[in-house]
């Protein structure tokens, strides 16, 4: 057990926790615009955590550079896709949920 493996395990645990909580959020929140919060934020951070954990396991070589590219790509693309989704829903007239409304 070297130090990289331990850090990797911790980061994998944190990342999986984030991803699981994000999924629970997607299930629990009452409407589309609130569901997009866990899917856009927590999921992104969780995935970044898992991949950075893999980088620590790998050490530094070409493969970890590829992992780094995937991390950067996810960090840029996930919010963009979230924005595109939210914007499309907003334009097509989905009304945001207000406190006291019924769950959808």
């Amino acid at each position: 057990m070297d130090i990289g493996t331990i850090i990797c395990g911790v980061l994998l645990f944190i990342g999986c926790f984030f991803i699981l909580v994000a999924s629970v959020g997607v299930l629990r929140f009452p409407d589309f615009f609130t569901r997009i919060h866990p899917a856009g934020k927590t999921d992104t951070l969780g995935q970044a955590c898992v991949l950075i954990g893999l980088i620590f396991y790998e050490g530094f070589d070409f493969i970890s550079l590829k992992l780094l590219i995937i991390v950067v790509f996810l960090l840029v693309v996930n919010p963009t896709a979230t924005y595109a989704l939210a914007n499309a829903a907003f334009i097509s007239g989905v009304k945001p949920w207000k406190k006291g409304d019924k769950r959808q």
Partner: peptide, 11 residues
């Protein structure tokens, strides 16, 4: 989108 409890829906 990534930070405090907010998501951009139009920019």
């Amino acid at each position: 989108t990534l930070t405090p409890g907010t998501v951009t829906i139009e920019a």
